[in-house]
């Protein structure tokens, strides 16, 4: 098993910083959805991780902890994630993306 970044929607959707999307070294990996968190009544959308592209470097954790000071991102073992975004389930829109969350572990 390996580590991937996991973003706490409740903390992320309370802010609107989007810094992690700008500092991830991998392209199309940390994406932003205007819808995520809205269903729980939060003001903003949330960032989320396409876990099939995450290399587990944890730069986003440093950015979220030290630059944004939100502490919303943690590294977790991929099999400990009940649901996550995968590239094949992500849809790009005009100004945002949406993702259908599924189990990231096959079988």
């Amino acid at each position: 098993m390996y580590l991937v970044a996991d973003i706490n929607v409740e903390i992320c959707a309370a802010k609107n910083c989007k810094l992690c999307t700008q500092y991830c070294p991998e392209a199309n990996t940390i994406l932003y959805s205007d819808e995520l968190g809205k269903d729980k009544g939060f003001k903003y959308g949330s960032a989320y991780v396409a876990v099939d592209r995450c290399k587990g470097c944890a730069q986003c954790v440093w950015v979220c902890d030290n630059m944004a000071k939100n502490h919303a991102i943690k590294m977790v073992m991929i099999d400990q994630l009940p649901q996550a975004a995968l590239t094949e389930n992500i849809t790009y829109g005009e100004k945002s993306t949406t993702a259908v969350l599924t189990s990231p572990v096959i079988g």
Binding site: T21, Q22, P25, A27, N28, Y32, K55, A58, S96
Partner: peptide
């Protein structure tokens, strides 16, 4: 500032995890 909301031209690549050059 729009990063994360559009498809980027850069795709998956074999560079090391956390490489600043990749960023």
């Amino acid at each position: 500032s729009q990063m994360g909301s559009f498809k980027e031209v850069l795709e998956e690549h074999p560079m090391c995890a956390g490489c600043a050059m990749t960023l």
